[in-house]
Design a protein around this nucleic acid. Structure first.
Lengths: 414, 414
DNA sequence: CTATTTTTTTTGAGGCTCGAAAAAATAGAG
DNA sequence: CTCTATTTTTTCGAGCCTCAAAAAAAATAG
């Protein structure tokens, strides 16, 4: 059972709530914070005064508001950009990118790098990650001591504790405890996140109107991934990052999937599957390692022009996605969907078959109300989500500490 | 965002925690409660003294412990059976059953009744439910004013607010707001729950060792239902009771399901589907309305004796369940499973094909670690879960009130 | 320059939890 | 039968926290 609430937890939680309110609203006044948190003005006044004293929040310039109202003008509270920094790293197929971000969310240093993830040794892969982080930390613009958290997003399956990559399509290596490795190397708390989960986090920050409490982010790329937010919380499996939508079974014993099994949704809707079908190859054909984005765009263009095997390939992808979503909707009820990745740009080719399939399923009852949005570029989303995740960690753990850790936070504050 | 914690919430939550600890442990001493809740002895002493004063808890007889230890003997705290009562109602195919249960969980009055749910009018169905509740309330053993909550479990889909039955296989009627109806009629707060969810709740109370934070209860009956507990919480859809495992798609365009669609898991594994396959009827054959438990048992007996169409029917059921579970495990990771209902008694016929199918899916990685338990009789489970749910409501809302409601609770206390 | 309006801070009261100490209740030893 | 050791439970004072109300601050309108 959940543990009792101690008296000191109260302040801790309410501090965290104030920080969260400021991060969400940007430059809210104390009065606005009181309204959104439901706490009294006196409490907000006390807490924000503490936070300003600790260098976590800072009062904004009064001119910004420019409100022409009568009465004492509101003074906006913002996050003190110098309170801390976080680091994000995104590891995807043949690509590694790292950024340092200040407490207010601005990028202050970044680096990107191509590598051959599929053939690299375990040590080389880990080495590259450690090295790129080290180089950023050595950037003269960066105060190493201010870096409070590293978040690494990986295409593939991570564990629930966000400590390790368990399996990934981008490398034959498995079970790499990146979090432990980075912490040991740099002494900075680290987590390992699933890329699609970070997409979902980012969507929520980008468009909280549309992506609020329940929505689905689906990555249509070489593989098929999913990030799921239910009841306002990121949904993960019980042991792993979970949400392996791409490996739900579409047709028992069907097309060969990259994972070695048969009939997965991905084996019909992943880039390699669309490619395979467009080439009219057998469903037993071993999936190719990579299809470039340019090739996929060319494929989509052909499909739009002529009613040939290319169009049929997209139709089958839509069907698999539709039945998969239908089964998913049987479990969680329909929700807004964001289609992300290169094949999202070909969603016009996918949607008709997808909707037709979904109408055949339990989710189809509300078929019309299911809305799709597309975003062809996944990388910025993943990076953004990663940044927000890391910053949120800092908010909660460093600046609203459970017990001690006050010392550490004090040091990090400029 | 979630709202700030007010100062008075603290006591309220900790009261609720103490009540929950007592309900879980049965007769814990104050010291034990302090240990499980993490609160200090002084706090527990203060809260339990309040609760005893309010007639919610009662000190147990010191003899019961019989501890031969030195020192002041622990005095067990138990729930005061007379503090309140709740009512459970279970509406399933052709069957309605109601019970009144005291605050400690003992049944004090009950009634069961056969009806023809499939052909009854809307008014008749509602009327029967209201009438059976009324008769129990008129039982001289029952103090009407003590009844604090009614929980109605229904086979079918309910809404997230637990106010209404949206759809059910047991009746052609839809969207019946039972909660509103019962509240208007009797002035007692009511909720409408999904039967399989209640099974899951009951399993958790019955065997918290095995069914703790993550597990699945699957009803193998005329239809296929599921109750899912994830991270210690009952999992429901975003709009409805959700978890319609039986209507995940096993084979696109496949066998005709009772829901009118094709290829659902249920269309292979529901009683009517097993029956249809055992009879070697076409997959397009309209599902029969009901197959008696006796008929199903006979079918299973035949399947065990001869390798004929009956055995094949169970094999196909296992295959559908296996692929369905595999897809589910792709989303939530594997967890212990309880198979409940008449076909759970035939699980020996189902299991081999089920395991074989699951091994073909993403969930199959941990195929060995997936364990199945069977319970052929669903009704007692549903009733038990319903009772615990209603009692938990009373615990939280009446005896650890948010704001006011103190008056109401005072009245109910004997 | 004063009255009005709105935001923010201050102040005092009331609650809550906690640790330490005291009280209560028993078993075992002599 | 008394005394001591032991364990559980209650009591008490200290320290925080939140809240409502009042006061202060800072601007506009007239």
């Amino acid at each position: 059972m959940s543990v009792g609430i101690r008296h000191d937890d109260l302040r801790r939680r309410n501090r965290a709530m104030v920080i969260a309110a400021v991060r969400r609203a940007g430059q809210p006044s104390r009065t606005e914070i009181a309204a959104t948190t439901g706490l009294s003005h006196s409490t907000i006044s006390a807490i924000s005064s503490d936070l300003i004293g600790e260098g976590i929040l800072a009062e904004g310039k009064p001119s910004e508001a420019g409100a022409l109202k009568r009465g004492r003008p509101q003074v906006g509270l913002g996050l003190n950009a110098e309170a801390a920094t976080v680091m994000t790293a995104v590891l995807s197929l043949n690509f590694l990118s790292v950024a340092v971000i200040d407490y207010a969310g601005q990028v202050i240093s970044e680096e990107q790098r191509r590598l051959d993830t599929l053939t690299m040794s375990r040590d080389a892969l880990i080495g590259e990650c450690v090295a790129i982080v080290r180089r950023r930390l050595e950037d003269p613009d960066i105060d190493v001591r201010s870096v409070a958290r590293v978040a690494l997003a990986i295409q593939g399956i991570t564990d629930t504790d966000a400590r390790a990559m368990l399996w990934s399509p981008i490398t034959p290596q498995t079970d790499i405890a990146f979090a432990d490795i980075l912490e040991a190397e740099f002494g900075i708390p680290a987590t390992v996140e699933n890329d699609c989960n970070m997409m979902a986090v980012a969507l929520r920050w980008r468009d909280p109107e549309r992506y609020r409490d329940d929505f689905i982010a689906i990555l249509l790329s070489h593989g098929i991934g999913m990030g799921l937010v239910l009841k306002g919380e990121l949904f993960t499996g019980t042991h792993s990052s979970g949400g392996e939508f791409g490996h739900m079974i579409h047709r028992p014993g069907g097309a060969l999937c990259r994972c070695g099994r048969r009939g997965c949704v991905e084996a019909y809707a992943g880039n390699y599957a669309i490619w395979r079908n467009a080439r009219q190859l057998s469903e037993d054909t071993e999936p190719v390692a990579d299809v470039s984005d340019a090739q996929m765009r060319a494929l989509a263009a052909t499909a739009r022009q002529t009613d040939g095997p290319e169009r049929e390939a997209y139709r089958r992808a839509g069907e698999a996605l539709g039945y998969g979503l239908g089964s998913l909707f049987a479990l969680i009820d329909p929700a807004p969907v964001a289609m992300v990745g290169v094949s999202a740009a070909a969603f016009d080719l996918i949607e008709p078959a997808l909707r037709e399939a979904i109408a055949q399923t339990a989710g189809g009852q509300h078929s019309k109300s299911i809305s799709f949005d597309t975003e062809p570029n996944e990388l910025p989303l993943i990076r953004e989500g990663c940044a927000m995740r890391a910053l949120t960690f800092v908010d909660q753990e460093i600046f609203a500490p459970g017990m001690q850790a006050k010392a550490g936070s004090g040091e990090n504050v400029a």
